[in-house]
Every structure is written in structure tokens, then in C-alpha cells.
């Protein structure tokens, strides 16, 4: 991938740890290739800005805002998305 150079020692922040209303930039989508590709197709690629909007009443899944639309995904998948909070 384009930027694999930094961060081998630093523990990356993942999307599931963010709070409501927080914005972040996607750095990398890990996890199974097929799952990662699904997320990428939905627009979650490196450099995309996302915003945490809401958690479902039982705490999971998460609702996020990106590229002008709303997407929901489970914490399980969100844990594979490395981000830099803005």
C-alpha cells in the first residue's frame, strides 16, 4: 500500500474507540481481505474523513458519516479500521 512506512511500534487508534461527535481520518483498513474490500468499496479508504454519529441503543453497531452519507457497521469491523483523530 502507499504508506506502510510509519507506525510499527506505535499502537494505532481504531475507529471503535472514538467517541460520538469525534472526527477522524482513515489510515488503513485491516482485517480479512474480503471484509476490508467491502469497506473500501463503501468509501472507507485511506485519507477519508469520517465522523462518529451514534451508537445503537444496545451500544452496537456504530453509525458513522463519510463522503456525504451515513453508514453503520459493528464494533467488530470498526476495530479493524485504523484512524487518526482530527
Amino acid at each position: 500500500m502507499s504508506e506502510t512506512t510509519p507506525t510499527n511500534t506505535v499502537l494505532k487508534i481504531t475507529l471503535d474507540t472514538l467517541k460520538i461527535g469525534q472526527e477522524a481520518r482513515v489510515d488503513r483498513v485491516r482485517g480479512g481481505r474480503a471484509n476490508a474490500q467491502r469497506l473500501q468499496e463503501m468509501g472507507l479508504i485511506a485519507g477519508t474523513t469520517i465522523r462518529i454519529l451514534k451508537f445503537a441503543p444496545l451500544g452496537d453497531p456504530i453509525e458513522i458519516f463519510l463522503r456525504g452519507y451515513h453508514l453503520t457497521l459493528r464494533r467488530e469491523e470498526a476495530a479493524f479500521i485504523e484512524v487518526t483523530p482530527l
Binding site: N35, R38, L39, M42, P61, E63, Y69, H70, L71, T72, L73, R74, E76, E77
Partner: peptide, 10 residues
């Protein structure tokens, strides 16, 4: 199961 990756349309 494939993960739940779902759009919430307006």
C-alpha cells in the same frame, strides 16, 4: 456471516 455494513439512507 458477512459483517453488517449497511447504509442508513436519509
Amino acid at each position: 456471516s458477512p459483517p453488517l455494513i449497511m447504509e442508513l439512507p436519509p
